[in-house]
Amino acid sequence: MIEFRFEGRPVAAEEGQSIGAALHAAGIRSWRTTRFGGRPRGLFCAVGACFDCLLTVNGTPDQRACQTVARAGDEVTG
């Protein structure tokens, strides 16, 4: 297991697991809101096609959580 941080709190992930899956498994189902209606967004297609699951990884914005493998020490924000 490795550990990364989401909005400052630790989240565990298996080696090779995506950030999106690790967050979802940790009960964090939503990590951003839409820009007009403020609707919650998390995983939907989980295969990189829908772009619902965007988040910021180590300062790089708009990464697909389902396509980004979690690495130890990653700083992740919504």
Binding site: R29, P40, R41, L43, F44, C45, A46, V47, C50
Partner: peptide, 8 residues
Amino acid sequence: PGVLTAGG
């Protein structure tokens, strides 16, 4: 959130 595609 919680609605997933089947493949997802």
